[in-house]
C-alpha cells in the first residue's frame, strides 16, 4: 500500500450513509465502491437506484441499508427517474413549495443497467442537461442474474452467456467505451475510478457532485463471485486492472482529458488475468492479442490527455 496515504484514512468521515447488514457477496467490490462513494456524497442527497446487485442487497422489505432518501423503480430508467426528481425539485423550489437545500441527485446503476438497457434513458438525461451525478458501478457482467455477459464484459471473458468452449473463446466483443459515449454528450464531467484507489474515487465523486449539469463516473467494481477470484483479492485485482492499463483512471473535465494516474511501465495483463477464473481458458496467442489492444487503447488515451495540454501527474505511486 502507498506509504504516504497511510494516515489519510483518518481524515475521512466515519459516517456511514450505507448501513452494515447489507447482503452483498463476501468481498464485494461494488458494496465497497458504493460505501466509499456515499461517504463522499454525504447526506444531502436523493439516490435513484437501478435494479441490480446493489438494489437487491440493500433493500428487502421491510428493511433498507440506506440512511439517505432512496428510490428504486425499474432497471433501465434510472436516469429518467433522476430527471423527474431533479425537475420536480427545481419547479417546487421556484414556486416556493420547498426550500432550496442544494440537495444533490445521484443515480446509480450497474454496467448492464447503464451501458446496455439503460443507455437510452441515460443519453436522454445527459443530453437534456439535468443537474445530476450518474455513477455506473461496472462489474463487467449481469452479476445479479448469474454472470451473463453485458456490453461491458471484457473481450475473452467467460460468462454464463459467453461461455468458453470448444468453439468459443468467451466474450466475442471488446468492452464498450461508455465514458467516451458520455464525453460525446458534451457534459461537464466524466471520470473513471476504482475503490482500490479510494481517495481518488471519493475526490472524483465530490467533483461530479459539484459541477453544474450531468456528471458521469464509471467505477470498476471487482466481483469475486463473477470473476472467479478470491474474496480477499478484491482490492488487489482492482489495483492490477489499473496498473495493467486495462481500466485506466482518468477524468474528462469540459472535454479535456487528464490521466489520474500514469505509470512508467504498464504491468503485463497476465498478472491481472491469472488471478481470475473468467480468463483462465485464454491461450497465449489470445492473451497477446488482448495485451496489444490494451497498450493501443492506453496510448490513445494518453495522447488525448497530452493533446489537452495537461501534464500527466503521478498521483499515486507504486
Amino acid at each position: 500500500m502507498e506509504n504516504y496515504s497511510i494516515y489519510v484514512p483518518k481524515l475521512i468521515t466515519k459516517k456511514e450513509n450505507f448501513a452494515p447488514g447489507h447482503r452483498a457477496c463476501i468481498g464485494c467490490g461494488e458494496a465497497l465502491a458504493v460505501r466509499l462513494a456515499f461517504k463522499a456524497i454525504g447526506q444531502n442527497v436523493i439516490v435513484i437506484n437501478a435494479t441490480g446487485c446493489v438494489e437487491i442487497f440493500t433493500s428487502q422489505l421491510p428493511y433498507t441499508s440506506w440512511r439517505v432518501p432512496w428510490i428504486h423503480t425499474l432497471f433501465e430508467n434510472t436516469a429518467a427517474v433522476a430527471s423527474g426528481i431533479e425537475a420536480a425539485r427545481k419547479a417546487m423550489i421556484r414556486k416556493g413549495v420547498i426550500k432550496d437545500t442544494n440537495t444533490k441527485i445521484v443515480a446509480i446503476a450497474g454496467d448492464g443497467g447503464t451501458i446496455d438497457i439503460g443507455l437510452q434513458a441515460l443519453s436522454g438525461a445527459m443530453e437534456r442537461g439535468h443537474d445530476f451525478l450518474y455513477i455506473c458501478f461496472d462489474n463487467e457482467a449481469y452479476m445479479n442474474t448469474g454472470i451473463q455477459r453485458s456490453s461491458a464484459t471484457p473481450f475473452g471473458a467467460s460468462t454464463t452467456t459467453s461461455p468458453a468452449g470448444k468453439s468459443s473463446f468467451g466474450q466475442f466483443a471488446w468492452k464498450k467505451d461508455m465514458p467516451a459515449i458520455a464525453v460525446a454528450h458534451n457534459i461537464p464531467y466524466v471520470a473513471t475510478a476504482c475503490p482500490s484507489y479510494p481517495f481518488d474515487l471519493m475526490e472524483k465523486v465530490k467533483k461530479g457532485l459539484e459541477v453544474k449539469g450531468p456528471a458521469y463516473i464509471q467505477v470498476l467494481s471487482v466481483c469475486p463471485t463473477g470473476w472467479g477470484c478470491a474474496a480477499d483479492l478484491s482490492i488487489k485485482v482492482g489495483r492490477l486492472a489499473v496498473k495493467t492499463g486495462i481500466f485506466p483512471l482518468y477524468e474528462v473535465e469540459n472535454g479535456k482529458y487528464k490521466m489520474s494516474i500514469d505509470f512508467p511501465g504498464l504491468r503485463p495483463i497476465t498478472e491481472y488475468m491469472s488471478l481470475q477464473k473468467r480468463f483462465r481458458h485464454l491461450k497465449p496467442k489470445m492473451l497477446e492479442q488482448i495485451q496489444q489492444k490494451v497498450i493501443e487503447k492506453y496510448e490513445e488515451l494518453k495522447e488525448k490527455a497530452a493533446a489537452c495540454e495537461y501534464n500527466c501527474q503521478t498521483v499515486l505511486e507504486d
Binding site: V81, G84, G124
Partner: peptide, 26 residues
C-alpha cells in the same frame, strides 16, 4: 404555467420521469 417541461426521449422515460417527480412530491 410555472412548471418544468421535460421533453423526454421516450414514453418509457416519460413515465419514469413522472414517477420520480411524483415521488419528490410534485
Amino acid at each position: 404555467l410555472d412548471a418544468e417541461y421535460i421533453p423526454v426521449e421516450s414514453e418509457h422515460s416519460a413515465m419514469s420521469a413522472c414517477m420520480g417527480s411524483s415521488a419528490a412530491g410534485a
